[in-house]
Amino acid sequence: MTDAPLPDLGARQATSTSGYESGSNLPSHIGEPIVKVEGIHKYFGQNHVLRGVDLEVRQREAVMVIGRSGSGKTTLLRCINFLEEPTVGSIEVDGVRVDADPLHARDRRHREQIRQIRMRAGMLFQDFNLFPHMSVLANCIEAPTHVLGHSVEHATKRAEYYLEVVGLAEKRDEYPARLSGGQKQRVAIARALCMEPKVLLFDEPTSALDPELIGEVLVVMEDLAHSGTTMIVVTHEMHFAQEAADRVVFMENGVIVEQGPPEQVLNDPRHEETTHFLRRFLDR
């Protein structure tokens, strides 16, 4: 299925949901669409933060979202697992589709659907948000045992595996406060992986880290990307995007301005805004 022909996206190229040019083939490892964001608008009060965003992410695809602060990229990510309730539009993750319904956002059925999406989409935060009162291992097995209903032994075995993946197996009994920022974020990644989500959402995962700790987190993320983990990453690490992204999405003023393979968007952008952003960004 990996080289199925793409639908013709023709004139809407700049805002096309897949970001690949019509007629071109997808990279061979990319699979079927797993995340569909359709027509998302988000208002904070009168502030129109997202102004109609469509985005489709396929299995095993690594999508990096860039743009200046205030462009709506973090809000977009948080809308995908409904940490922010979109005002208009719909989200689909792994076949679970939820329409924005701010009028009935607190209804039980709506909440349960959102929970189903959240179980399928792991989220990583800028400031890690490990549970400080639990050991590393307890952090990792909390949701699998209490949400998925796995036995402690089973969950522990898997947690040990994923801690090994992020290179922190020996820290399983430590408390988060005894870890460095980079280690905390890697534990957070392991914790998210323990739910075996269909997609990982990274919200500026290295922004709160000391410069010398950023690398260890990016290495783990790059490994995940190359081993076929579907991920959407909001980041300011252009070099990382260049290396690990299948697709780069540039956002400005609440819309997707341009998207495509990293070498194209980052090195040969088609839109003036993108050029402008990248130049200012690289100048700093």
């Binding site: 549970f131 909390e142 209490h146 957070a188 998210a192 739910m195």
Partner: peptide, 25 residues
């Protein structure tokens, strides 16, 4: 607030978030 968000993002229902994450802290 990030504690609650992290727990919710893991798919924990509201009561569980309160009992396992918020109240102990």
């Amino acid at each position: 607030p990030g504690q609650r968000e992290a727990a919710e993002a893991l798919g924990m229902p509201e009561r569980l978030v309160m009992r396992r994450v918020v109240l102990p802290q």
